[in-house]
Simulated scan of single mutants.
Amino acid sequence: MTDIKPIGSLCPVDDQGYIINQSDSSKINDRFQEVIRLVTESCLSALSEEIHSIYLRGSVPRGMDIDGVSDLDVVIITYSEPQNLNLDWTEETEQLINERFRFINGVELGFSPLSEFEQTTHCSMIPFILKTYGICIYGESLIHKLPDYKPDSSLANEHLIHLAPLIERAKQELTGNEDTEDIEDCCSWIMRIIVRAGLALVIVQEQSYTRDLYPAYELFTKHYPEKEQDMRTALWYAINPLSNAEDILDFLNGFGSWMKAETENWLNVLNPYREPHLPL
C-alpha cells in the first residue's frame, strides 16, 4: 500500500506563458538504460518498417521516478494507423519487462500515427504530451516541429471532452468482471483520468498544469473544497487500486457522476459545440 505524499510539481512556464519541457536524456537514471534498450529493440523487431520515432514521457525522463511506483511510458509513432498493425506482441513484451525489472511499476507502450502530428493549429493530447513531457529515444524527433502550449481552455478540453464516455467505458469493463488484475488496472486508469480532469476544471482560473496527481488534486480542492474528500479518495484509488469491482462502480456512480455533470457545465460555457479539439 502506497501512502499519499505531496510529491510532484506544476509545469514551469516561460515569460509568454508557454509550458517548458523539463525532460532531458541526462536526467534518466542509469538503471533504466537497459529497459529502454530492450523496449526499443522489441519495437523495431516487431515493426521494423513502420516506426517513425519512439519517445519517453512521464517521470523517468524528468529524473523524478520513484522506485516501485513509476512506470515507463513509451510512445511509438508509426507511419500507418495503429489499428491496422499487428500489436499482439506488445502484451508479451510488457509482461517480460515487468517480470525482469522490479524497480518499475510496469511499462506502457502507446501507439500514435504520424498523421496526428500534421495538424498543429488545434490542441491534441499526444502531440502536447511529447512537446511538454517527452524526449525522443529513436528516429527523427517531432518535438521541435510541434507548437508551444499554454495551460488554457484548449488544453483543459482535451481532458474533459472525453471524460463522460471514459467513465462509462470503465463501468462497462468493471460490470461482471471477476479478474482481479484487470479490475485493479481499470481502477488505476480511470481514477488517474478523474484526478487530472479535476485539474482541467480549474486550468483557466489557475493558468497552471501538471500530470502529477498530488498537485492536480490540490488545485482542484482549492476551488472545490466541498469535494476534497471525494477527490482524495480518487487519488488514493489511483495509487492503491481496488480489486472489488462493485466498490469502484459505487464510487463512479457517485463522485464520477458529479464529475460528469460538472464537466458538462464547463463544456456548455467553453466548448458549447463539443469540438473534439479547440484552437491553440
Rank of each mutant, 00 (worst) to 15 (best):
R57K: 15
Y55P: 06
S154F: 01
H122P: 01
N157I: 02
T90P: 01
N268M: 14
S42H: 13
E246T: 15
M125Q: 11
N265S: 14
N84V: 05
P6W: 02
I20N: 08
H159W: 01
A200K: 03
Q83R: 10
K5E: 10
D179N: 11
D71F: 00
E34T: 14
A170T: 06
S48Y: 14
P272A: 04
K145S: 14
G63P: 06
F32L: 12
N177P: 03
I190H: 00
F111P: 07
V75M: 12
E91M: 08
L87A: 04
L270S: 10
P225K: 04
N105F: 04
L201H: 12
T120P: 05
E91V: 06
S153M: 13
E218R: 13
Y133E: 15
T180A: 10
E181D: 10
D148K: 15
D88W: 06
L10I: 15
D250W: 00
D15V: 08
L96M: 12
W236I: 05
T2G: 05
D67A: 08
D179E: 06
S208M: 09
K227E: 12
W189Y: 04
T221S: 12
W189M: 01
K171P: 03
C186W: 01
A200F: 00
L163V: 00
K27W: 04
Q229A: 11
D179G: 02
S257D: 15
K145V: 09
G8I: 07
Y224L: 02
P241S: 00
Y217N: 06
R100N: 14
I183A: 02
E158L: 12
L163N: 04
W258I: 12
M259C: 10
N105Y: 00
L166P: 00
I28C: 07
S141D: 11
F32W: 09
Q95L: 12
E275V: 08
I161M: 14
L44T: 14
L278W: 06
A156W: 05
L174D: 05
T78Y: 03
T210I: 03
D73W: 01
D14G: 08
S26I: 02
I248L: 06
E264L: 12
N240Y: 02
I126R: 08
E262A: 09
R37L: 14
K260V: 13
H277R: 13
P279V: 07
E275R: 13
P225I: 06
F255C: 00
